[in-house]
Design a binder for these strands. Structure first.
Lengths: 205, 205
DNA sequence: TGATATTTGCGCAATTATCTG
DNA sequence: ACAGATAATTGCGCAAATATC
């Protein structure tokens, strides 16, 4: 594995350009409960149980059966463990693997339609351009994950606060209910009393 | 470059052994709000702004200033982009990088205390043993992440439910308060009335 | 004690969302 | 309005740290 990714040591890319330091802190778009249903359009390496029916094509074939319920114990079977050797440039880590995988059984690997070992098809792995892109993305990823962490933490805190608030409100309700009971009881007693004491004492009814 | 990580094509590792299919669904250990404070003992590549003060030693030096507030715009500066070339086996992806990095400024790299390029110090990268471990870990990682996703979703749902419940309780409180006000008003009126009507009618004060 | 499982941060690549000219 | 560029998200695998057994 090894990630090439060879140092490019201390090439700091000090430029970086904060790119509109939003940093948000914007409250989560979650709360909609639908946040899980979205985001699964990767196709990336959507072969989970390494068996995975047909569809050797390049369909996006969303939903990599990883979301939702993982079938409660049947999932999490190994599924990678067969990767192309990719001695040249390593075209893509996940995609195409499916093709490769089934080409063993179905197709003779289409010799040249894709995968040109030369510095074509995007960026050469060690170009400065590539490293710049990677570095920027790495920064963005860290930022995004921090944001997600903060969001999760906020949600948890909110849940805790709501729970406490809930408790307080319930106590309040109990207290009010008790007061009401007392007053009502008192009134009913007075009502009886007034009846016992006789009629007109100005008790309007 | 190039993944090495060579396929080990179709070596399915069908064993896998579900290892006590817990799958949990256990409610989160979160809710403790402290979940963020923990987990930062990596030392991994804890140099974020690629500048990062002294401490070139091997201290765990927890807290990679990524948690908490990212300083609102100063963080997320590139910080990797200086990795060891690791032409041999690549001993570790992140750790030791710190050492490398500061060895440039502080220490001559201790020549042999660690990092034996030979097939020592752990497993060779293409051993079956290694692949087995990796595969198991990959499965575990997917499982763990699914669990985390479910947990987050549950927390969000819980927050929503609590909010609704909260609203209901507040309405209830308003209603009870109103009833109490009415009754009290009624009683005070009666009190005045009884005073106007004459003296004691048994109004115990 | 060591082996295994779980959790975590990281970088990569693909996808999606936003800008920008 | 549209295409290219850039940022933001997401799933993945890796390795290290930690938790469990």
């Amino acid at each position: 594995m090894s990630i090439s990714h060879s140092n490019s040591s201390s090439l700091v890319f000090s430029s970086h350009n904060p790119t509109s330091v939003d940093n948000s802190l914007d409250l989560p778009p979650d709360l909609t409960t639908a946040s899980l249903a979205g985001h699964m359009t990767h196709m990336n390496a959507g072969h989970y149980g390494q068996a995975m029916g047909a569809q050797g094509n390049g369909l996006p074939h969303t939903a990599d059966n990883r979301n939702g319920e993982p079938a409660m114990g049947l999932a999490y079977l190994p599924y990678s463990s067969c990767l192309t050797s990719t001695t040249s440039e390593r075209p893509a880590q996940h995609s195409h693997i499916v093709q490769q995988e089934f080409s063993q059984f179905l197709l003779p690997p289409p010799p040249s339609t894709l995968r040109q070992p030369g510095p074509k098809r995007g960026l050469s792995k060690d170009s400065v351009e590539y490293r710049l892109r990677r570095e920027r993305n790495n920064i963005a990823v860290r930022k995004s994950r921090d944001k997600a962490r903060r969001r999760i933490q906020l949600t948890q805190q909110r849940a805790l606060q709501l729970q406490e608030e809930n408790h307080r409100l319930q106590l309040h309700i109990e207290q009010l209910s008790h007061e009401l009971d007392t007053l009502r009881h008192y009134l009913s007693q007075r009502h009886l009393q007034s009846k016992v004491d006789g009629i007109g004492v100005g008790e309007n009814s």
